[in-house]
Write a protein that binds this DNA or RNA. Structure first.
Lengths: 253, 253
DNA sequence: ATACACCTTTACGCAACGTCAATGTAAAGA
DNA sequence: TCTTTACATTGACGTTGCGTAAAGGTGTAT
């Protein structure tokens, strides 16, 4: 049986370009070239290609494959062992990378939480603003600053385990929220569970929880495009959904 | 403080070429260009470079980094999460690859064991040849072929666990041999343990063990360059060492 | 005759620089 | 001041394994 590039390519599940490339780098030369300059492959080439593709699937470089299929069978085992070492090394590097990325994400989440707090402080300040008559400006400002400071202190004072816990809680909020969003019902069981988890999450940073503040922060998620972007990451509309759920949860607005 | 390419490069631990490249792709433009055409970087550029390198260490592509450092801080978390997903996917692929490579290596080891058997059959045949008078040619050939067939049957009939066991045993042989080689004494405890492990390994394939055959195979490891290459993979001279150990172990030659 | 599927070679593009090459400039010692 | 030395510039090719045109020839069916 004889094959042109495309026929062999279709048979082996590769592109004709790949075969021409293998010819170019002398990894798989056609059996002969016909009078029109067409590459013609025979059974031996089919077999060799299968070998090549086998090693390729194992992630071996074409250069190494050339050695393997050219040299006698013994080099195969040796080359594979070396290859395995490389792969194991790669995986270790990947593991380190992943762990670092996760640490960075955790920090980033931490920053987002910090922003939550600052927003919260701003919200409290706004509450105070509404009660303008009661306090002087300096006191209000100090109150806002103190709230942030207290929260920051709380975050800084967190133990490794606490930090892990709050990070996990944050993930749970998101996951529950995603599931709840699919139900479409902000008053439903899942959505209310998400709202409750969100309350727990906030309480890690706030020393005093009030329904008003909770509802206010939820509203901010919709008003501030940065927060909206964060909560809508997987599904647009999630921030709004969380706000609705929290408003029902707190019974406010 | 102002820096030329090399000064900044040395400070940041990158090459000047990298900085020029970052300039070229507009990721990090110098603060200004002096009268001689030199790139001059300022503090802002140093800070930005540090950010860039931070993300680069996490394995983020330069294209993504550009988005991250250009856009406000919120995109950072999102980009990192996407990046983490990619990394996790990569690791899974790697795990599959590694497992496949290991399977292939095991098979390859299996082939080597098969070759051992064939060699063994050949060895038996040679023994028989030496006793030319006793048997006819056909019987000898049949005997040799039968031995190979029996061994092959034995390998084919192995259960998954048995195969894993024999593979592990093979690894133990090599490891013990490596350790023994360092002692330099083929009569030592380690070397004799290696010889014994090697006997156990052979017994997985042979239905009848004899000291003569064991010693003969060990000699073949030295005589056949393919076997020598296999056993000398980590340390040249290992095949010879194994032969010596086995000769002492069997008390032959 | 013409359409259509297939073949050929040539060559750029991808990521993130490394590595010459050819040439201009700054700083430091004799 | 002259020369050496260190450093600057742009330009361009190489790396891996092909994808993707582009420009043109071939084979077969209608």
């Amino acid at each position: 049986m004889e094959y042109t590039v495309q026929k062999l390519a279709r048979m082996a599940g590769v592109s004709p370009r790949t075969l021409r490339y293998y010819d170019e780098i002398s990894m798989l030369k056609p059996a002969r070239i016909n009078s029109s300059g067409y590459r013609i492959y025979g059974q031996a080439e089919v077999d060799r290609l299968q070998q090549i593709l086998f090693y390729r699937e194992l992630g071996v470089s074409l250069d190494s494959i050339k050695d393997i299929v050219t040299a006698p069978s013994f080099n195969g085992a040796q080359a594979l062992k070396e290859h395995r070492e490389k792969l194991l090394e790669k995986r270790e590097q990947l593991d380190v990378l992943i762990s670092n990325v996760e640490k960075t994400i955790a920090q980033s989440e931490g920053r987002i939480m910090m922003m939550d707090q600052e927003k919260f402080a701003g919200f409290k300040q706004k509450l105070v603003d509404d009660n303008e008559a009661k306090y002087g400006k300096e006191i209000r400002e100090k109150y806002g600053a103190e709230t942030v400071n207290k929260s920051n202190q709380k975050v800084k004072g967190m133990s490794q385990e606490q930090f892990a816990e709050v990070t996990k809680l944050g993930t749970e909020v998101i996951e529950t929220l995603q599931a709840a969003f699919k139900t479409g019902d902000p008053a439903g069981e899942l959505a209310q569970k998400a709202a409750d988890l969100h309350r727990q999450w906030l309480c890690f940073y706030w020393d005093s929880y009030t329904k008003e503040a909770h509802a206010g922060v939820a509203q901010m998620y919709v008003d501030d495009p940065r927060f909206t972007a964060y909560y809508d990451e997987q599904q647009p509309g999630t921030a709004k959904f969380l706000r609705d759920a929290v408003h029902i949860y707190t019974g406010i607005k």
